[in-house]
Design a protein around this nucleic acid. Structure first.
Length: 632
DNA sequence: ATAGGGTTAG
């Protein structure tokens, strides 16, 4: 937007003279007869002027003038409308209003000012202004206008209702949206499928999945977009598995053919689940339908493969793209980072710059996480400075989170604490938790306790945080503290999440918890695990007993560790898959050091690629080694 | 007399 007309309008409107316009001094009434009028025309004497334009022609000319209106000519027209009382003509005022609201130089304050001069604004006037406000930075005003018009007894059209709903999502007021839902029913729009689709999206953005589903059921003609909104609702609200089911039912029941957006959502669901097989199936469908040209879709495929630990395939998609944007590069960089290829991630970042693609916030999140996963402290700090100095991107909480992780892993705990204190942003629970994780790694009791205090202050302490503190105490041998904390947790009823490992075989997901005896092949699995343990010990594996949180003797500790869910899943993998195939295990929490070592030895002794995806990232094991700096 | 609507990537 250039010069805001509002600035002009703040002066008394009546003081506005046509002569204010620099470029023309012709009387406005004459100018209106020129269809091709442009205020910048230096001299329009050559233009033939009709002698006595018919009033009707004059009005038509005025309309086309408004249509092609520029900032200055609109000011003139406004003054003209006031003088001739045309402003109270519903047609003209509406034309003029929508021109003010949607022209490239729109100014909402000016529009509002103009609106206030209309004696009896119609529903259309309101709709126009509502629409303008809904995409502005004061969406709340859209809602107020909506209320105002309904109070005046004007009936909003379905389109404005839909815009107001969007506004409510913007300023996140469930309450306001509910009122609109009521109005929609009262206005008899309950069968407008586009409006209902917006309503679904509204409920979905407030995590009201049930309500969204109810609205979906009420849509008589459900088209693909309605399905997509439903799927996006399930995805947003964490019902990821159901997304896959919905995709299948769309495809099989044939009611609605999944389009590129559907595929995009489902690919994201697969990425969240780590459901590689399903993801590949969707990829096949994408190719079959020719959606593969979509940039969005390919970008999400890169992320999906990365998050399933298939870096080669992620790279394959990336390489095959004729056009790559910042998102493609960021996805690839993050993919490399989360799979332990930090150096390559940085190389990719450099290559991206050579290609002239400007990095953005999320690119730097990927780059910094690459540094933290590979322990590149100096590089990471350098990138942090570079991003604001050279790229003008101010670090956000995620960037600082990576830095805290980076310093914390490198045992620079006090420095990490200082970063949080002095970063100039309000620390969130996640960043404290990151530091707590670092305290756990380095057994830093006093700082760990301080961090818990911060979390409690934020009222954000979770069971996992206390478990980390338990870890910190036990690794330091502070058993009386461990007992005390356990008692405290019991009193407060703090439930810890049980560790769970899953392995997917032929599309079936097998779950394991510690000491699990629920699997139908439990005997074979335990036998196999004992055999593996023997073999690994020969190769030099020693149980890392600091991973055990109970005050036990060394031998008992080793025993307590030996049936962790990861190990059961790995043993089942060795048992149930042909030699040489890759074993993929997903763990809901962080893998412990001992299981990490176990997987590493297993990859060498049994000649298997092992990929463990835990809450933090991927651990790739191969030939008795790990692609990343070992545990961290 | 008249503009105008819903889903989507790192």
């Amino acid at each position: 937007m250039t010069q805001a007309p509002a600035a002009v309008m703040n002066k008394s409107l009546s003081s506005l003279k046509f002569s204010r316009t620099r470029t023309t001094s012709k009387p406005i009434d004459k100018l209106f007869t020129h269809k091709t009028f442009q205020e910048t025309r230096p001299n329009n004497n050559q233009q033939p002027t009709p002698k006595n334009p018919h009033p009707r022609t004059q009005q038509q000319n005025l309309i086309s003038l408004i249509k092609s209106g520029t900032q200055n000519s609109l000011l003139q027209i406004h003054a003209h409308l006031i003088r001739t009382s045309l402003l109270q003509n519903p047609t003209f005022s509406l034309r003029f209003l929508s021109c003010l609201c949607f022209s490239p130089f729109r100014d909402l304050r000016y529009s509002r000012h103009f609106f206030s001069q209309i004696d009896k604004p119609s529903a259309s006037h309101y709709s126009t202004l509502i629409r303008a406000y809904s995409s502005s930075d004061s969406p709340k005003d859209a809602f107020f206008l909506y209320k105002e018009m309904t109070q005046k007894g004007l009936k909003p059209d379905p389109v404005s209702s839909s815009f107001v709903l969007k506004s409510c999502m913007k300023f996140s007021s469930l309450f306001c949206g509910l009122q609109i839902h009521g109005r929609i029913l009262g206005d008899g729009f309950q069968s407008d499928s586009l409006l209902l689709t917006t309503l679904m999206d509204f409920y979905s953005s407030f995590a009201s999945r049930d309500e969204a589903c109810k609205v979906f059921d009420e849509i008589s003609k459900k088209d693909t977009v309605a399905w997509n909104v439903l799927i996006s609702c399930y995805l947003r609200n964490g019902r990821t598995r159901d997304v896959l089911m919905l995709f299948d039912s769309m495809k099989n029941e044939g009611a609605c053919k999944p389009d590129d957006v559907t595929c995009l959502l489902v690919v994201q669901a697969c990425a969240n689940l780590g459901a590689l097989d399903f993801g590949e199936k969707v990829y096949g469908y994408i190719e079959e339908c020719g959606y593969g040209v979509s940039l969005n879709l390919r970008n999400s495929l890169i992320a999906m493969y990365s998050r399933c630990g298939c870096l080669e395939k992620a790279y394959g998609v990336f390489k095959g793209m004729p056009e790559k944007n910042a998102i493609s590069w960021s996805a690839m960089i993050s993919g490399l980072a989360m799979n332990g290829y930090g150096r390559d991630a940085i190389l990719a970042f450099e290559e991206m710059q050579r290609m002239g693609i400007a990095p953005d916030e999320q690119t730097f999140t990927g780059v910094l996480s690459a540094c933290s996963h590979c322990g590149l402290v100096d590089e990471g700090m350098e990138f942090l400075h570079q991003m604001s100095k050279e790229f003008g991107i101010e670090p956000n909480i995620h960037h600082y989170g990576c830095i805290v992780d980076l310093l914390g892993r490198a045992s620079l705990l006090d420095q990490a604490y200082q970063v949080i204190i002095s970063m100039g942003l309000k620390p969130d629970a996640t960043i404290w938790r990151t530091l707590l994780g670092a305290c756990r790694i380095h057994g830093h009791v006093t700082l760990g306790e301080r961090v818990i205090e911060h979390l409690i202050e934020l009222k954000a302490q979770e069971a996992g945080d206390y478990v980390l503190l338990l870890n910190i105490y036990s690794s330091d041998g502070k058993w009386e503290k461990v007992t005390e904390l356990r008692k405290f947790m019991k009193e407060k009823g703090i439930q810890t999440t049980p560790g769970c490992s899953t392995i997917e075989l032929k599309g079936v997901v097998h779950n394991f918890i510690v000491d699990d005896i629920s699997h139908p092949r439990k005997h074979e699995i335990y036998d196999k695990l004992d055999e593996i343990n023997k073999q690994l010990k020969i190769a030099g594996y020693v149980a890392e007993i600091t991973s055990e949180l109970h005050d036990l003797g060394a031998e008992e500790k080793a025993h307590a560790l030996s049936y962790h869910s990861e190990k059961l899943a790995l043993a089942f993998g060795v048992l149930a898959t042909p030699p040489g195939t890759t074993i993929r295990v997903t763990k809901n929490l962080r893998i412990c050091v001992d299981c990490h070592n176990f997987a590493k030895f297993l990859s060498g002794v049994y000649n298997r690629k092992v990929i463990v995806r835990d809450r933090m990232r991927f651990h790739h094991f191969r030939d008795g080694g790990c692609s990343c700096n070992d545990y961290w």
